[in-house]
Simulated assay, not measured.
Amino acid sequence: MVICKPSQPFLQIRNSCKSSRPPSKDKVVVVLGATGTGKSRLSINLATRFHGEVVNADKIQVYEGLDVITNKITDEESCGVPHHLLGFMNPAADFTSTDFCDRASSALASVVERRRVPIIAGGSNSYIEALVDSKMHGFHSRYDCCYLWLDVSMPVLHQVISERVDVMVDKGMVEEARQYFNPNGDYSKGIRRAIGVPEFDYYFRVEAFADEETRTRLLQKAIYDVKINSCRLACRQLEKILRLRNDKGWNIYRLDATDALQKNAKESSKAWKELVLEPSMKIVNKFLTTPGPNIYTNKVPTLTAMAASIR
């Protein structure tokens, strides 16, 4: 459940007096994490408290349609927080990292112009990297960033992903995927790239000719493949975040949300507040009220150590 509370406006007031200091940059919060870790939840939590708006950085959620399969945030879950770059693209169109940089840069400028805090959230880390490194849009010269990373141990996250796929099936994932089935379709472009679409291709091809037992087996196999491919995506996303931090030197603050995702509903809400929300609010508040970039850092295990921990 997303916790909604009245926003506490944050306004960055520029000093119009002449000063020897360089002009201050606008502030951007970036929420990173693998699929299923709670990025949308945290971004909305922060937006409701810091007068923010969310800029979607998921390259599949930019497309219109497949709301269940792409796990788009609902109107109720958004708590009235404006979301940009969400569900606006033609499902058949191609949306590249260059397109994302152009659109996201415009969205950030719009949010800042209205004196709100932009919060970039999404799992397409290569798109976020492209935006931050973009010389064309001068990201580094315009913005200081606070990077928050929602981390969850892989065994727990894999279980969360599996359970989430089961919920998606109950919500109509199979019928949603059926709408995009095309025997001659291309699964390398547009929304049909989404995990949860190509996995059902063979099932849709043979279901009209197969007996009930075969249909059941193939359907379960397709659902299993969705789970496996989602878990593989999570691993790739984790590797990307670690590369951004360890190789590129991004100053990323790690928040361990493992306990918040594996406890029951009541305990989970308490753990989320204590382990994720409250530390995040302190970090973001300090970031927004202090001139300069993110001043926080914390030690993160290496890929080797993480791999050893899940054996």
Rank of each mutant, 00 (worst) to 15 (best):
H84F: 14
P293K: 03
P6C: 02
A210H: 05
S106Q: 07
F95V: 12
E278M: 06
W250T: 03
E213A: 12
F209I: 04
H51P: 00
H51R: 06
V132M: 12
K248H: 13
A93W: 07
N246C: 02
E129I: 01
W149I: 01
T258S: 11
R243F: 11
R192W: 07
F139C: 08
K72Q: 14
L261K: 14
R215K: 15
Q61C: 07
N264E: 08
E113V: 00
C145S: 15
T48P: 03
E176H: 12
I73P: 00
M306N: 01
K5S: 08
K189I: 05
D259H: 13
C145R: 06
P6E: 05
F200I: 07
S78P: 04
M154F: 05
N294F: 04
F204G: 01
D94N: 10
E64D: 01
S105K: 09
G38Q: 11
L66Q: 10
R103Q: 07
S268W: 09
G38D: 07
L85F: 01
C79P: 01
G249E: 04
S43G: 05
K273W: 10
C17F: 12
A109W: 06
D211R: 15
R232I: 14
L46I: 11
H140T: 11
L219R: 13
E274L: 14
V132Y: 08
F181C: 06
G65Q: 07
G38P: 11
D26L: 07
K282Y: 04
K59C: 03
S20W: 11
G122T: 12
D211Y: 15
K135L: 14
L150A: 03
F10P: 03
S141K: 15
I283K: 10
A92Q: 13
V276F: 03
L261G: 10
E212P: 00
S97W: 08
L242S: 03
V54E: 00
G33C: 02
C79E: 00
H137P: 05
N56T: 14
D225R: 12
N90V: 04
H83L: 11
S124V: 13
A130F: 09
V29P: 04
I69F: 04
A177D: 03
V117R: 13
Y147A: 13
I310K: 11
W149T: 05
D99Q: 12
I295A: 08
F10A: 00
K59N: 10
M136Q: 10
K39G: 05
E163K: 15
M306G: 02
G249M: 13
D166G: 10
S153L: 06
S43T: 07
R103W: 04
N45Y: 10
D99A: 09
N264P: 04
P6N: 05
P22K: 12
K189M: 04
N285K: 15
S309W: 06
K263W: 02
A222V: 08
S126V: 09
S230A: 12
V206N: 01
K266M: 01
R236G: 02
A130H: 14
T214M: 09
A194C: 12
M306W: 09
T96V: 14
I60H: 10
E64R: 15
L85A: 06
G33Y: 08
P155F: 06
A92F: 10
P6M: 03
S268R: 15
F100L: 07
N251A: 11
S162M: 08
P291R: 14
V31H: 10
N285W: 09
L46Q: 05
K5Y: 05
G38L: 11
